[in-house]
């Protein structure tokens, strides 16, 4: 039963990793951008949530009502103000600018909030659990997983059934011709980044409820999200969920052997899949 429990907990944590990954996958799909500051933005969202809670006294999940639009607006501005200037075929500018952004965010958060680790208190939600067939399922992990499924389903719907999604796909296919359809690529990219940071906001709040956070947690979250994307297969949103789950399970199994192996086991699973199936488990067919 223990191993089953480990796997189940890993699956549920995988939902969080899928939330880290979904935004990465989205912006890569739309504009071929890999944002090194992605993890730091997750942490930024956690701190914003902390401040919102301080100001309003709302419970963490309700604070999302503020955090999501704030992060989305920040994403729109970030894309229009900085990142759009880096896009033009060359690999270096977006990579190095987002790397600089990552260092700025980490040290900015350090300057404002110190290096102390924080946590958001979600009260009874954190300890509530249900026992099904002898396995105890925490309400929080279950909610996290359900949110991930809902977010990915929502993104999938948006991508394939709305005008905005059509604009995303068209711009990704051929930005120049998309311009001739009246789509200003700078705006399309900004909307994609806004959407991405909206998802990042949700990921940040769940991260902050689930565990301690500090200004330097970002790179680790970026790596988990990235691993989930590659494991699942580039360009496949549902794949990121599968990738997150595999990563979560691998980490869970690693941790059950030796706590020091938790993260390492996740990396090893990623490297194994990279070695055996370099295009991921579920690559998009037309990729």
């Amino acid at each position: 039963m223990d191993i089953l429990n480990t796997i189940l907990q890993g699956v549920l944590v995988g939902g969080l990793y899928a939330l880290f990954a979904a935004g990465l996958s989205l912006i890569f799909g739309v504009m071929r951008l890999v944002n090194i500051a992605h993890g730091d933005l997750i942490v930024l969202a956690a701190y914003i949530a902390m401040e919102v809670i301080k100001l309003t006294g709302l419970p963490p999940l309700a604070a999302l009502v503020f955090v999501v639009p704030v992060m989305a607006a920040f994403g729109y501005a970030l894309q229009r103000g900085i990142l759009n200037r880096t896009l033009g075929g060359d690999l270096l500018p977006p990579l190095l600018v987002s790397f600089g952004l990552s260092v700025i965010l980490q040290n900015g958060l350090l300057a404002v909030f110190t290096a102390d680790s924080r946590k958001l208190d979600a009260g009874a939600l954190e300890t509530a659990s249900a026992t099904i067939g002898g396995i105890s399922i925490g309400l929080l992990p279950a909610l996290m997983f359900a949110t991930a499924v809902a977010v990915i389903a929502g993104l999938q719907y948006l991508f394939y059934n709305t005008a905005l999604g059509r604009a995303f796909r068209a711009t990704s296919d051929d930005a120049e011709i998309a311009e001739l359809m009246g789509l200003d690529r700078r705006k399309v990219y900004a909307w994609a980044m806004a959407l991405c940071l909206g998802v990042v906001a949700i990921a940040g709040v769940f991260l902050a409820i689930r565990s301690n956070f500090d200004p330097f947690m970002g790179p680790g979250r970026l790596i988990f999200g990235f691993e989930a994307v590659i494991i699942g297969g580039l360009g496949n949103l549902w794949g990121t969920l599968a990738g997150g789950v595999i990563l979560g399970v691998a980490q869970g199994i690693g941790a059950s052997i030796d706590p020091g192996w938790q993260i390492l086991a996740g990396h090893v699973a990623f490297l194994l899949i990279l070695a055996l199936k370099p295009r991921g488990l579920f690559p998009r067919m037309d990729g």
């Binding site: 059509r166 796909r169 296919d173 998309a178």
Partner: peptide, 13 residues
């Protein structure tokens, strides 16, 4: 646009 259907291409136009 390769990831759009025929009709989506037209609608976008």
């Amino acid at each position: 646009f390769k990831s759009l259907s025929v009709e989506e291409n037209l609608i976008l136009g």
